[in-house]
Nucleic acid binder design. Structure first.
Length: 428
RNA sequence: GGCAGGUUGCCCGAGUGGCCAAAGGGAGCGGACUGUAAAUCCGUCGGCUUAGCCUACGAAGGUUCGAAUCCUUCACCUGCCA
């Protein structure tokens, strides 16, 4: 980032990264102070991996660090045991073992997005289980609970909605207190003065702000990032199938990750570039003009996908998936690809193996590659004209590959619909 | 502990003895049109050895020629009362 750049708060503002904040001017003064401001954001282990939606606050921490602040990434080993109330539906508690396993994995992912060094802005990692795990109930109720008014808590939006629908357990009701205590703890341990999080966290964050003020007379800040949705209001980072796009390459392959962003709609790509990349303003604005003037090139989508894949999976992986995407989505002639390119491209997509003697039908191929879930679905795909081998439509359920169909002597590229690809390695 | 209401496919939701693999909507999937976009239109949407069979309407058992629908018990959810 260039050093004459705009103030971090103005930068975040331009990027659309500020949903709500406490006193902006006071925050700005603290950011401009002689000491680096310490800030934190917490991430609950609600699954074995972070997903794309977590990137917004996480990358915002990174932006603050680059602007001279010191970030703390907090893994919610304790809060993950409780569950933040959602608008509808009590959560199912996960076992302590599961939560511990998940928070360890998530912690490893969190650490990749901020810099750890000995400088005053070097990042810290924390786990709220460290200060709640051994805490007694009576201490908690006296030291923390006493500062919260149930009257006020009942007025919170989520709580109101839950009371109107299916109710809310005392456990989830208490979540606010735990997160508030975290802020107080980090304020005391590390002088943390700012907490950021998704806009759905606003209530939890200001709960901490007030607790710090009441207990320690400290003045600390809150800032939330917007909940990112697409033009249809769907939560960002949900795949078209409905599942999350995960950071863990075992759960979402780098190829699938890249493809998700390449397929972002024109209406949101500019906004996503600002929210998720570290590209300069001029470059983003140029890409946004491209979307209007030469939309078919999809240059903004490709750039977004490249940046995000590099950020999460590294430069090497990114080059691999870009090469694979170009090879497989290039207009048609798969036969023209050399063996090396094809091998590399095939390693990025789902694979299966077969032998010609087994006389696999197109239905078998679709099923074995996981492109469909059942034989019925495979037949349907063929009937609907959505099954292709080597970019050629296969209209017959009984179709079987022959030696002449093999690319580079060993591959069949099986496709379902426009963009679901898989490779079948044919063994001699 | 008592009383009342509820539990249907990925989600919402209709269905109160056969015409129910279950209306309708949403999501998803495929096709056409395009730009690996959006919108629109069309089709599809439990599984299988697919004119047939199997599994399924919270669980188990029962009544019946036949049950998502009736009966019994159990589990869970919501509300009111204790």
């Amino acid at each position: 980032m260039d050093s004459v750049s705009t103030h971090i708060l103005d930068e975040l503002d331009w990027r659309g990264l500020i949903a709500q904040s406490t006193d902006r001017d006071a925050l700005r003064r603290d950011l401009d102070g002689p000491e680096p401001l310490t800030l934190y954001s917490g991430f609950d282990p609600t699954g074995p991996s972070l997903h794309a939606g977590h990137l917004v606050p996480l990358l915002t921490l990174r932006r603050f660090q680059q602007a001279g602040a010191r970030p703390i990434v907090l893994a919610g080993g304790a809060t993950g045991m409780i569950g933040d109330p959602r608008d509808v539906g009590e959560r199912t508690l996960n076992s302590a073992d599961v939560v511990r396993n998940w928070s360890d994995r998530i912690r490893g992912q969190l650490e990749r997005f901020v810099e750890f060094d000995d400088s005053p802005t070097g990042a810290l990692v924390a786990n709220n289980l460290d200060w709640t795990g051994g805490q007694g109930v009576l201490d908690f109720l006296r030291d923390v609970g006493k500062h919260f008014s149930v009257n006020v808590m009942l007025g919170r939006e989520t709580v109101k909605r839950r009371l109107e629908s299916d109710g809310l357990s005392y456990t989830e009701f208490s979540y606010l207190l735990l997160q508030s205590q975290d802020y107080l703890e980090l304020y005391r341990r590390h002088g943390c003065r700012l907490q950021i999080g998704g806009s759905d966290q606003w209530g939890n964050i200001v709960g901490g702000v007030e607790l710090v003020r009441r207990v320690d007379s400290g003045s600390v800040h809150a800032l939330t990032t917007p909940l990112v949705t697409d033009s249809e209001g769907r939560k960002f980072g949900k795949s078209t199938g409905g599942g999350n796009i995960w950071l863990d390459p075992e759960m979402t392959s780098p190829y699938a990750w890249y493809q998700y962003f390449v397929n972002v709609g024109d209406a949101e790509v500019g906004r996503y570039l600002r929210l998720f990349t570290f590209l300069e303003r001029e470059e983003i604005e140029a890409l946004e003009r491209d979307v209007v003037e030469r939309p078919h090139l999809r240059s903004a989508q490709k750039r977004l996908a490249e940046e995000l894949t590099t950020l999460v999976h590294g430069k090497y992986q990114t080059e691999q998936v870009i090469a694979a995407s170009q090879a497989l989505f290039g207009r048609g002639e798969l036969a023209g690809l050399d063996a090396g390119t094809l091998d590399a491209a095939m390693s990025e997509v789902p694979n299966a193996t077969t032998r010609l003697e087994e006389k696999p039908t197109i239905v078998d191929l679709l099923l074995s590659t996981g492109l469909v879930d059942s034989r019925g679905a495979a037949r349907r795909a063929v009937k609907e004209g959505g099954a292709y081998v080597n970019n050629v439509k296969v209209p017959d359920e009984e179709w079987t590959p022959t030696a002449g169909d093999l690319l580079a002597n060993r591959w069949l590229v099986v496709r379902r619909g426009k963009r679901n690809l898989a490779g079948v390695r044919v063994e001699p």
